[in-house]
Simulated assay, not measured.
Amino acid sequence: ICEKILDLTFHLFVCALAGAGAAVIAMVHFLMALAANWGYLKDASRMQKYEDIKSKEEQELHDIHSTRSKERLNAYT
């Protein structure tokens, strides 16, 4: 009887150890996905700021160019 109890205890210990290992693997997987998503969002934020600055500069250049074109037309008249 004592042998059966020890055998059952060993099997339960192995199952608990396997479950803990699976939980650790799942946690590592979750943290890796979390880090990847954070990096993606940070990169997207930087890209949005870059696109905003780029569009403002292009608009300013377009305004300067159109102003100079108007000045040239007014100079000839």
Rank of each mutant, 00 (worst) to 15 (best):
R68G: 01
Y76T: 08
E58Y: 07
N74P: 03
L12M: 07
I25Y: 11
M27E: 12
R68C: 01
D43K: 02
Y76C: 04
E3T: 01
F13H: 00
A16V: 10
S69D: 14
L8I: 01
A35E: 02
M27Q: 11
A26P: 02
N74G: 03
F13S: 00
V14H: 13
H11C: 13
A44V: 09
A75T: 11
C2R: 13
F30V: 15
H29D: 03
E60H: 11
Q59H: 01
Q59Y: 10
S69N: 12
H29G: 05
H65W: 07
L41D: 14
V28F: 10
L34E: 14
W38G: 14
E71I: 13
A33N: 11
A20I: 08
Q59N: 07
V28Q: 06
T77S: 02
L73K: 01
T77K: 04
D7L: 08
L61W: 09
V24G: 08
L12R: 07
N74W: 00
I5K: 02
Q59S: 14
T77L: 04
A16T: 05
K70M: 07
L8K: 05
Y50L: 08
G39D: 03
T9H: 15
I5C: 06
H65R: 11
Y76G: 07
V24W: 01
I53S: 05
G39S: 04
V24D: 00
S69G: 10
L61G: 07
R68I: 08
E71R: 10
L31P: 04
K42F: 10
I25Q: 09
H65M: 01
V28I: 14
D52P: 00
I64Y: 04
K54R: 03
I1P: 08
M47T: 15
R72Q: 14
K4R: 11
M32P: 09
I64K: 11
T67C: 10
C15H: 14
A33D: 15
L34C: 12
